[in-house]
Structure formats: structure tokens, C-alpha cells
Design a protein around this nucleic acid. Sequence first.
RNA 1: GGAGGGAUGCCCGAGUGGCUAAAGGGGGCGGACUGUAAAUCCGCUGGCGUACGCCUACGUUGGUUCGAAUCCAACUCCCUCCA
Length: 424
Amino acid sequence: MVENGFQSSFMQEAAARGFIFQCTDPAALDEAMVKGSVAAYIGFDPTADSLHVGSLIQIMMLRLLQKHGHRPVALVGGGTARIGDPSFREEARRLMTEDTIRTNLAGIEGCLRQFLTFSDDASGNVGSGAILVNNADWLDKLAYIDLLRDIGVHFSINRMLSFDSVKNRLDREQGLTFLEFNYSILQSYDFRELNRRHGVTLQLGGSDQWGNIVSGVDLVRRTDQASVMGLTTPLLTTSSGAKMGKTANGAVWLSENRLPVFDYWQFWRNTEDADVGRFLRLFTDLPLEECARLEALQGAEINEAKKILATEATALCHGRDAAQAAAEAARQTFEEGKVAAADLPVHSVPQAMLAEGVPVFRLFVEAGLVKTNGEARRLVRGGGARVNNAVVQDENTVISEKDMADGAIRLSSGKKHHVLVKVG
RNA sequence: GGAGGGAUGCCCGAGUGGCUAAAGGGGGCGGACUGUAAAUCCGCUGGCGUACGCCUACGUUGGUUCGAAUCCAACUCCCUCCA
């Protein structure tokens, strides 16, 4: 398929698609994958009830693993969430309550189920069914003295201090608490536990996890004389250097509850030209030849590639039907200039609100297009607010049932953000 | 334990008694241009109120003053050097 020196189908495709940044032992991993099924894990922190695009490259890697007959193991850090990963953070993360963590775990599982096929067989048998595990199952039971004697002896403070993730925090004015310092020890412990329980021999992660991953590899080798490996993905930024997945309202969420499918599709549709090929390879299942063909489109033609990227990426996350509906809504809205295309995000308001009439700036807040009244006023003053395609001149204009067109009122913030307000 | 330095809005960073909701930059949002791109240019960017306005904000708590982000005291946290 592609000449990159690897024998295993997974390594060939992962390398060709741009998933690989660093690997503790590429040759050994390649060999293991030729011999049989490998179980690999990635940890997700339950800091929110949905994953976002920042984690998508990891999820896609798990998906790729499954495609090639290996077993993806998703670890949610119910235990480590109570500590917080200090890696490359400016400040200590605030600690979360048990309740929050529990809700978040469920939400994250929902996101993962869109991308992976889970197996109910969580035994040590290596297959390709994904499994989901929670490290609270073992971390919560740890006894301090036992832990220190068991694995504490294998960690060198000198070494830990040399890791970029720690060094960074130490070099900056922000300190590092002992609590946070232990994160990487527990992550190593996770790796060993997964190796023992589920035969996991590979840990995946973003390049910022390199230090933590290597620590785990060392621990398993020292205590269990087992050989396990680590593989990291590149840190993703857009071609113009911005962090991947940040928008106006924060993160680009994978959960529909947090981000309408239409907006998810729009996120991908607005990819920078220079990123199209890279994103097609990482975030869709399209064959490499097709990615290359689309990437080569020049000028305005590359918009076709972006539409395909958007639909394919959205299909993976929200299903083919929803993706096509989003594509169609975008086509009607942007290419036909239709006001109330079906499948635009909908916001329902009480009948009474429209019966009485409501100032337009309030309606924008209510619909979630802006966060505050002041922001809504500024939007109007800047000429960026529209109702049913007409620019709003006065922020105090009253909107009522009279403004309904085809059973809805379309509010727009700028050219790209639209919400249909309906009664309900 | 000792000596010195620091804590400013989403982030970085100026500001050392009133002209400061606080320079400048980044980020974000909107507009123009374009291809729903990038680059560039323009505007906006604490909350509430239609508005003269009110409230909240420069680590925390008190104090001095007609008036404090700016002066004083105590406290908290961070950094650097010494032990």
C-alpha cells in the first residue's frame, strides 16, 4: 500500500495517515502486530460529559486499531480524575466531585460508542472488541504504604524531574503539588494493571503524554519483566498555528447535546485549505488515494473536498443520516440562500414569549447565539445580527409571531451561525 | 529559618494617588475582500439598563485619603538567592 518499511497493516496505515509521532520501539510493535492481535489503551480524563475534537485523533487511532484486528481499550480516569494531570498545565486543575465524575463517565462512553464496536467480553482474551475500563476500580483501593513499597521504589525523582511535563511546571512560576506529581505514577500503575488484567501491551496518547507513557513502560518492565510499548500521536494545530478544536463557544464537542450536528459539520467545512489533506487522512475512513485526490484540488475546487471531509467526519460521529442532513441544510442555507432550511439547529421557546413579543437582543441570548445581553447588543451594533436574513438595525426591535416564516424565525450571528426559533 | 522580587481583565503585559473598566499585544466576535479558506484591512471585546446611570473588577482582609490597581498593615500563594 505505502512504502514506509512496516510489515503490519496497522503500522503501515497509521504511519501513512499521519498518526505516529513517537514510538518506544517501532520495530517490535510492528512485529507484534504481524504475529497477532495487540491490545492497546488510551486514557481519557472525565473532565466533561463529552469528549471534544481535541481527543478525536486518539479516538480515530483506536478505531484504526480495531479495523486492523487489534483490541482498543478505552480507559476513563475515574480515579486519576480526582488528581488532575499536571502536564503542560499552567495551574492545578480543580478537583471534581464523585457525582460529576460519574455523569461524565457515562457521557464519554456515549461518545466512544459512536466510533468503536464494544465487546461484552472483557476477559483477558485478545480480540478486536473494544472494552471500556475505569481506573477507579483499582486506584480507589490502593493502600499507601503498599503502593510505595511496590512501585515507589521504581521511580526516580531525578528522572521524573527531567520530564518536560514536570520541568515545564517547575520552570514556570506556578508550582506543582505532590498530588499532581503523583499523576504519572498512577498512570504507570494503570498501564501495569491493564497489562495484567487485559493483556494490554501498548499505550497510546498525545505527544504530551510521552513522559507518562515511558514511565509506565519502565514500571511494567521492572516489576513484571514484561515488555510493553508506547506510541504517541502528533499534537494537532491548524496550519495557521491555532489549537485544534477551539471556537467561539469553547470546544468542538462530540456530543450532540453540547454541539448541534449542523455546527459540527460546519466546523469541518471551515477547515483551512492547507489542512484538508491532513484532516481527511486523520479524521475520515476514506482511502488514502481518495484523500490525495481531494487534497490536490486547487482554488475554489477544494471546497468540494471540504464538504466531503465535513460529511465523512460528521458521519463517524453522528451517523450517516445526520451528516447528510447537515450537509443538505448547509447547501440550502449557503448555496440557495434559503431562510429556514430544515435541520438547522432548533431552539424552542414558549408560545407566550412570541405572543407577547420579545426584544431581539434577548432572543439572541435565549437562542444561545450569544452569551450575554451586552454581547447581543454589540452584535447588532456591529451589523452582524440578522433575523430571517434581514440585518437587524435596532437592538430593541421586538420580535413576535408576525416574524414567523415557514413556522420558524431564523436568527443568524454572522454568516455562519444560524438557529431556528420555534414554538414548543 | 534568613534576604529580596512578584500576584492586573480569557491569556500575556503596561500602569505607582484622581484624566483607569484600566495602554499595548494575543485570542475571540462582527464587517470588508474571497472560495462558508488563508493572508490583509476596519470595528467591537466586564455585567445590568433604551438611556444621563448603576454594579462588579487589578491575590485576601483591614487602614490612610475628599478620592487607591496605585500609599500603609496583616495574611495567602508564587519566584530567586542564602541556610
